[in-house]
Design a protein around this nucleic acid. Structure first.
Lengths: 274, 274
DNA sequence: ACGTACTGTTTCATTAAATGAACCGATGTT
DNA sequence: AACATCGGTTCATTTAATGAAACAGTACGT
């Protein structure tokens, strides 16, 4: 590992909870020599990535990161971070992969990609994804602020025979999403379409959107679902990462344990990262 | 200069205008060896501070900066970046120094600090600073979106005999602010108070607030004004920097040329930076 | 088909920079 | 007074960064 990486890694110890870290604490955290750590801190401070609290002499995040983040936000649209992941996801699952973004209380399609393998396939042409009826929507609601669930309740509407239309049923559904870590929509939005979705997160650890795979319902089976979930986990990790977010611990554990029980083969996304 | 700094400095070449930079271009920009530059880029990419556009193979800002910026935003309030600068500013000028922050269309006091040297001094206790009547407000308006000026026009109100109350006079006043680089309020808000202010900027290069010095009008004179302006420039640079912003070129040149014509002595803020 | 410019590697001798143990001075605690 | 902890510094040693060169592969235009 290069010196540069070792130094930059110090920044990773700072968080919302741990706003400031002193020299001695950094030393303990990293296990590195004190003088070395000190020089790293000085270098980072010189670059503006860190700054020293003049009172406590501890180090906190510096102003330079604000400029860098602004450049990132204005030059790299969230769409870009999702698109090629979706391509791989669509390829790996041979289905329609799509990502959506939560803007206020509406879930808006951001990008999608369709495998060319099947002649019969799902196409996406909605301006908005209903939160209570789609896999993406359920994935979002399950990890969103309770206020958003309230909003979604008000907009409940029947789309198919399978659509969840009672508040109680919706809450049970959301609890099951939290239990298994996936949102599932078995023809609850469109007849003949089976969707599996997972939430995406932003830097504030809030839900920012979802990524999902929509299949033709007659083509789905248990084995296929397992494979799709596996790919979805990898895709969600990549997109969340590209958006500067982190997968919450609870969900992360859920995903980890499910992937061990799932087949460890044919994860094209994970392979492509190496 | 440490390796760490040299590597991190590469990030500084990326901007809103220059979203992506390739290896060869980085090499030209920095004048460093190609292999070295390449190793830097790899290290930054490994840290997530950079990412490579898979299409163009050029490097762009990475997702990690979003997380870092979020930590900065949530753990270091803007107030913290202003406070000690204000202390020094108040000390150096022996007057009341205050910073304000633009929230929507209202300019709200953020922090202030008062020199203890004089017994007669200005105190600040307003919940809001009128844009058309205060030095801070004029400084903000002069560099703000025209829409904000329109809003300010609607809220024009007389405070003293010196208050600018016509739109035409306000526009002329704003032009003079742009010409000299300072907002001046000679008893236009409060009788007996002479204010000089300059705007502050955020990472998007938009006006984010102002920093100003308010003096007892009878104590002010040409030499004192020169000294205050000098100190204000330094203070505004520091606070803007702490907020992740940059002083716009036009204003920067204005300040540079004025500071050469001003006395180069007794700039306590600049000295304290070294 | 050819030349050119680009990215991305690797090799290797040279050199500059990173390293870590010990130390300093200040502050605070028992 | 003794001791611990903290931020920061020093310096001989060593390790890692450096840069020149060479090479592979790709894309573009003549």
């Amino acid at each position: 590992m290069s010196t540069v990486c070792k130094a930059i890694d110090l920044l990773g110890w700072l968080s919302e909870q741990r706003a400031e870290i002193g020299l001695a604490e950094f030393q303990r955290l990293t296990g590195r020599d004190k003088a070395t750590t000190y020089r790293y801190l000085c270098a980072l401070e010189e670059s503006g990535l860190l700054e020293q609290n003049p009172d406590s002499r501890a180090y906190r995040m510096g102003p330079a990161v604000l400029r860098l983040a602004h450049v990132r936000e204005t030059t790299v649209p969230r769409r870009a971070g999702a698109e090629q992941v979706l391509m791989q996801l669509a390829d790996a699952t041979s289905e329609l992969a799509h990502a959506s973004i939560l803007q206020g209380s509406t879930l808006i399609p951001l990008a999608d990609h369709c495998s060319t393998r099947h002649s019969a396939r799902v196409v996406l042409s909605e301006p908005e994804l209903p939160l209570h009826a789609t896999a993406s929507g359920l994935a979002v609601l399950a990890y969103a602020d309770p206020a958003l669930v309230k909003m979604a309740e008000k907009k409940i509407k029947r789309y198919t025979d399978n659509t969840t239309i009672s508040k109680k049923a919706l809450h049970e559904k959301l609890q099951s999403v939290r239990d298994i870590g996936f949102g599932v929509a078995d023809q609850s939005y469109e007849e003949g379409v089976y969707g599996i979705g997972v939430p995406l997160f932003d830097p504030s650890n809030a839900v920012a959107g979802a990524v999902a795979v929509a299949s033709v319902a007659t083509r789905i089976n248990e084995q296929k679902i397992i494979a799709i979930k596996q790919e979805l986990i990898a895709a969600a990790r990549l997109i969340t990462h590209s958006w500067g977010g982190v997968v919450p611990d609870a969900l992360d554990h859920l995903w980890c344990s499910s992937s061990t029980s799932l087949s460890s083969e044919s994860n094209s996304l994970r392979e492509s990262m190496a």
